[in-house]
Amino acid sequence: MEQRLANTWRMTVNEKKFIETALLSDLRVDGRRPFDYRRLTVKFGREDGSSEVQLGQTHVMGFVTSQLVQPYRDRPNEGTLSIYTEFSPMADPSFEAGRPGEFAVELGRIIDRGLRESRAIDTESLCVLAGKLVWSIRVDLHILDNGGNLVDAANIAALAALLTFRRPECTLGGEDGQEVIIHPPEAKEPLPLIIHHLPIAVTFAFFGDGNTVVGDRSNSQ
């Protein structure tokens, strides 16, 4: 996927041959072994549901928000989870402002599939009123600097933000018991999401004839 980026195909033939030759000796340009990860740091913001991940030179921020919506007809008792990505032109010369490009859409789909299809989030716990109101959880991922391996960095940023997110507590009231009352945090403690497991993305890159494999590929290799 990241081979589409401009700073990858600008490499000269000699640079590519040098990298491939070094990999045959189990060495990388930055001194790492083939399966060594770059330094990973995870920071949490002051607000619930925010995270900041740095993987080498790759920098991603994650933010989680929620709102009450009508559920899908085929899943009246389940809330929803959606992933959105935003690519800043400052992060990479190939990123353009405006509509998300193919790479941005593909990255969002990969993170979305990893979280939703593994059913990491208990969506049934997001139901407030069956068939009428459920919580919709939205994860916004902002790419601030692209130093390679955006999938793993964005995946960790999304998980870190989800782990610290708290949604408002709400109860049912009114004469018919169908009125939804959303309680402010000072009245009732916000609730964390129920997360069953943590699907961590681990990306590998193949070089040459496909027999040379490395983990955590940076833009230099």
Rank of each mutant, 00 (worst) to 15 (best):
Leu163Gln: 13
Phe103Gly: 02
Glu102Met: 10
Ser136Pro: 00
Leu126Ile: 03
Ala157Glu: 07
Ala120Ile: 11
Asn155Gly: 11
Glu117Gln: 15
Asp140Met: 13
Ile110Trp: 02
Leu163Lys: 15
Glu102Lys: 13
Arg116His: 12
Asn146Ser: 12
Asn149Trp: 09
Ile111Pro: 01
Arg119Leu: 11
Gly148Leu: 02
Asp112Ala: 06
Thr164Cys: 02
Leu144Lys: 14
Gly131Thr: 12
Leu163Arg: 14
Gly131Tyr: 08
Asn149Gly: 10
Gly114Cys: 11
Ile137Cys: 03
Ala120Phe: 00
Arg138Trp: 06
Ala153Cys: 15
Gly131Asn: 13
Ser136Phe: 01
Ala157His: 07
Gly114Ala: 10
Cys127Thr: 08
Cys127Met: 07
Leu150His: 02
Val139Met: 08
Lys132Gly: 00
Asp145Met: 14
Leu107Val: 08
Ala153Lys: 01
Gly147Ala: 06
Ala130Cys: 13
Arg119Thr: 11
Ala120Gly: 09
Ile156Gln: 02
Val151Tyr: 06
Val134Asn: 07
Asp112Leu: 09
Leu107Ser: 01
Arg138Ser: 15
Asp145Trp: 11
Arg113Trp: 04
Thr164Ala: 00
Ala160Phe: 07
Leu150Glu: 02
Asp112Lys: 11
Leu133Val: 06
Ala120Trp: 00
Phe103Thr: 07
Asn146His: 15
Leu133Phe: 06
Ala160Arg: 05
Asn155Leu: 00
Ala130Arg: 15
Leu163Gly: 12
Ser136Cys: 08
Ala130Lys: 15
Leu150Ala: 01
Val134Cys: 04
Gly148Met: 03
Leu126Asn: 04
Ser118Phe: 11
Ala161Ile: 05
Gly114Gln: 09
Cys127Lys: 04
Val139Leu: 09
Ala161Thr: 09
Ile137Gly: 04
Val128Leu: 11
Asn155His: 05
Leu129Ser: 13
Ile121Pro: 02
Thr123Ser: 14
Lys132Ala: 04
Ile143Trp: 00
Leu115Arg: 13
Leu129Val: 07
Leu144Pro: 09
Asn149Gln: 06
Asn149Val: 07
Gly147Trp: 10
Glu124Asn: 12
Lys132Asp: 10
Asp140Gly: 04
Leu126Met: 11
Ala104Phe: 00
Asn146Cys: 15
Ile111Met: 03
Ile121Asn: 08
Arg116Trp: 09
Thr123Cys: 05
Ile156Phe: 03
Gly108Asp: 00
Glu102Gly: 13
Ile137Tyr: 01
Val151Phe: 05
Ala153Met: 08
Ser136Arg: 13
Val151Ser: 04
Ile156Thr: 11
Asp145Thr: 08
Asp112Tyr: 14
Ala160Asn: 12
Val139Asn: 04
Asn146Ala: 15
Gly131Met: 06
Ile111Leu: 03
Leu141Tyr: 03
Ala130Met: 12
Gly147Cys: 08
Arg109Tyr: 03
Arg109Asn: 11
Leu115Met: 14
Ala160Pro: 12
His142Phe: 15
Leu141Asn: 02
Val105Thr: 14
Arg113Lys: 15
Val105Pro: 00
Arg138His: 14
Phe103Leu: 14
Glu106Asn: 13
Leu107Gly: 00
Leu141Glu: 05
Leu159Asp: 04
Asn149Lys: 11
Arg119Asp: 11
Glu102Ala: 14
Cys127Gly: 09
